[in-house]
Amino acid sequence: MDGEELTEQETALYDRQIRVWGADAQRRLSKSHILVCGLKGTVAEFCKNIVLAGVGSVTLVDDRVVTDESLPANFLILPHENHYNGKTLAEVCCDSLKEFNPMVHVAVERGDISTFGVEFFEKFDAAIISCCSLGKKKLINQKCRKLSKRVAFYTVECRGSCGEMFVDLQDYKYSKKKLEETIECQIEYPSFEEAILVPWRALPRRMSKLYFAMRVIEQFEDVEGRNPGETSIADRLGVLKLRKELCETNSLDESQIPDALLERLLTDTREFPPVCAIIGGILGQEVIKAISGKGDPLKNFFFFDAMDGKGLIEDISGPSTRS
């Protein structure tokens, strides 16, 4: 591994985790730059995790002004700071994150991320996008893919007891130890757009129902021009109609997307803190894996539902990138 040795201070601070992933991985982490957009509870958990892990820098993008509604699941916002003086979510979270680990550089970038040019993303090793419209997610994913260097791309959303995470590592090579030898592995990832375009009938029979349900809700919000989470039970009929259409085009039985699940996703749009901790934790681990090149990264969706307690990985790719 090229690059400088870890400092004594770093070795001491990260001792426990170096024992898990090794000094090489720690060196790579400390030189990595992470872009984070959309600061709700799940992303706050994620930020804490990678700041504790000791990444080089974290750049926060979220110009929404802090309100009482930002508070419940986001532990980076302290309630006694009643008067935020119009501070943005990114600014308040930035201040809190700095206290978690002074060795990590945490900064705020102002502006609408969808207007940032391709070169902006080149500074980063990973981009994590949350609370964004479907269109923005696709756009940022495309920008990351245009670069010659790989910028790992992640989206993450939690609604009520459910959480979803998507990963695009493009063309990802890593090595892992199998028995005594080290084997080189290569995985090809589809983009977010490519993944969600994979015809449903082409997917494995026992695909997580959450995948389909999330796509229905996502499309509904997109068509209606709403921000993620701006739904209620009043949208039930509209959503059921969309489900019918999507199921017909995709030759999927409507029972694969149960009414009850859709209703939960529509009505309980607030984040549930234990789910934030879980999804934020898994996301943290995946970003650490991608940066350190250590360990099998997950491909390419992860679902968790507190109702059944399962944390499921699904590979949703077209035939060309199916592993």
């Binding site: 985790q17 901790a277 879980i278 943290g284 681990q285």
Partner: peptide, 16 residues
């Protein structure tokens, strides 16, 4: 051997 992520995930599961 400890990493923050696993502890966070486990804490979430405990609360559930």
């Amino acid at each position: 051997h400890a990493v923050a992520t696993t502890n966070a995930i486990i804490a979430g599961l405990i609360v559930i």
